[in-house]
Design a binder for these strands. Structure first.
Lengths: 365, 365
DNA sequence: TTGTATGCGTTATCAA
DNA sequence: TTGATAACGCATACAA
């Protein structure tokens, strides 16, 4: 089954030898041979270059040849080998997606949108899970091995050193809802500061007295900013002693963490907070369930709760969570837009982009 | 900045000309030039083949050279270009993941496990979203363009024609929780039949009289099997007129669908079912919320509910859903195991694998 | 154990 | 508008 394909140019003289094969256009003629552009070229009587141009939709190819070549390609079941193509262009149409597990509800919603956007722009997402932060560097470097066209980081923070690798290779990076400030990378965050203010204002307007902010132990960048902004906004009223504030901590940044925190902090009715701003919606949902079903508290009368993100579950029946909304769609669109423009050669300075948020008032506050 | 690398063999004579460059081993010497195996070869004074072998861990390379070459490679910041490598081997280490959106909770849990397993086996997941079933074929073919080592289908059903393409290319496919029976592909399902039986038995033992099965309009493969098995198990009792059964339908296979169905089917206390088996957990959760919070029904006294999958939310505070559990971990492990073995050349016949399920009794039934 | 030579399938450059 | 040719970076058969 040796060399069935003629290398145009190299041995045009031998074309006659190989021609017979080219006539077996019956498509799937049993051969386990994978059809290449050379096969199509033979069958169509054109050069590989022409085939390549036809497949790529090069405008300077004539209507007639394009159609002929494309139909022959279809007939033969030819598909461009993207690996070979990437090899030649020294760049693939893969976009690296750095994440860590699929447990955070908002991140899932964001990834969902992001994957859609990436696909629509003609790229493909190559997912890489970085559960161990220590592996971040290795993973980012590994992505480079695939000649990715760009990378989106939705978890962890790449070191500056990694940044320079990417800079050197001219591969754009976008950090989403991250702390980092990476040289040559865009950093997109939702307006955590405004979010914290909105929550504070709402609680104050509702006449709440014992306010609290609930976050996971150790905190996350986004959570910390939200909490700090919340407190800052409270400052004047705290100074005048009209209200009190405390920071609550849960052991895991999820429903269970919030649930446990609820049991822990909401028991003693007297001193317990009457308003809790949670760093994330799913923490808030856990807190809510603990408050309502375990402790029999009235929400929002006994305790008022505001979350952050507006995940799908927040809108659902039992919860009706009042929360600060950020839009995964906008986030995804902006992410891909920045990537796209940088890949296209636009040289944007490192930017820190802020997406708007708003307070969605439902029934928990 | 032209040709800094010598092509060994082609122009060994010109090595002298290029040698100087090789001595600039100070790693990141400003150059925007991407380091290749040839650079390492020069610096180490060996051939590219040797570098290739060292990086691949070829056992017939001497300990000494391997170490030297690897340390030089590290120093220079060399990383194998996987695209070039894949081109050569005519196979990448990418595994295609065909899915459709990240909205189904169980599928998300499964994908989470799957991505982990894939990564651990040294592969990388290339995600492809097929929301429009009509695009299934195109997408699967597109995956082939990336020379994927294998594909996992978690949504939709590829046509037999696609199957032959994969067969010809010898690229293994695994269908997970799908109806299909694809030539040369493994099909892994959880034990939907047993699941239906367990639910039926439980309701019967609890003395429920007006049983129902709730599924999305049109049904899904898994859902249908679950429902059919449920009814079959009920058959004897139906025949004797001791119980009644009906099929309920919701408009979307999610929380909202279940919620709406709850409002619709559970209002009239007299004729309403007193036991509902739901095709999926999140449908059950919606139904539960409608029953308890909108209609004020007691669960499981007024109405008893069993779901399917045992998603995380099912275990959470407000729900405590009784459900048929399938393990995303096992599913993922088996999926990757099959893929791995087929990629490794083992020729397994098309198999239909069934994973065990069990009933987790919580508080809704 | 290592080196030499070649080819993988494509695209970009240059020439016609 | 099209064709010939030379990379792209790596891995492997074959030679030594």
């Amino acid at each position: 089954m040796g060399d069935q394909r003629a290398k145009d140019g190299k041995n045009t003289a031998s074309d006659a030898r190989t021609k017979p094969d080219a006539t077996m256009s019956g498509a799937d003629a049993m051969s386990s041979h994978v059809v290449t552009s050379a096969d199509v070229a033979h069958a169509a009587g054109v050069s590989r270059s022409t085939v390549s141009r036809c497949m790529a939709g090069d405008p300077r190819i004539s209507e007639a040849t394009r159609e002929r070549v494309q139909s022959i390609a279809a007939e033969l079941g030819y598909h461009v080998n993207k690996i070979a193509s990437s090899m030649n262009r020294r760049k693939s149409d893969l976009i690296g997606l750095v994440t860590s597990g699929l447990s955070d509800p908002f991140r899932i919603e964001f990834l969902d949108c992001l994957i859609g956007e990436i696909q629509q722009s003609g790229y493909r997402p190559l997912v890489i899970d970085v559960s161990d932060p220590a592996q971040m560097g290795r993973s980012m470097l590994n992505l480079l091995q695939y000649q990715v066209a760009g990378v989106v980081v939705t978890s962890g923070s790449p070191s500056p050193e990694i940044g320079t690798h990417y800079l050197r290779r001219n591969v754009p990076v976008v950090l989403v809802n991250r702390a980092g400030r990476l040289e040559g990378a865009d950093v997109i965050n939702c307006d955590n500061v405004l979010g914290g203010q909105l929550a504070a204002d709402y609680f104050l307007a509702a006449g709440k007295k014992r306010l609290a902010f609930l976050n996971v132990r150790g905190g996350t960048y986004s959570g910390n900013v939200r909490g700090e902004s919340f407190v800052s906004r409270l400052a004047p009223h705290l100074a005048s002693g009209q209200i009190s504030f405390r920071t609550l901590v849960c052991d895991s940044a999820d429903y269970d963490g919030g649930f446990a925190a609820g049991l822990k902090y909401l028991v003693e009715r007297e001193n317990a907070p009457d308003a809790v701003f949670c760093a994330k919606d799913h923490i808030a949902l856990g807190l809510l369930d603990a408050a309502r079903f375990e402790l029999g508290l009235k929400v929002p009368d006994d305790v008022s709760v505001i979350g952050f993100d507006d995940i799908v579950a927040a809108r659902q029946g039992a919860y009706q969570l009042t929360t600060v909304r950020q839009s995964p769609q906008s986030l995804a669109r902006m992410t891909v837009d920045r990537l796209h423009r940088r890949i296209g050669g636009e040289s944007l300075g490192d930017e820190r982009l802020i997406l708007p948020v708003d307070l969605v008032v439902r029934k928990t506050a």
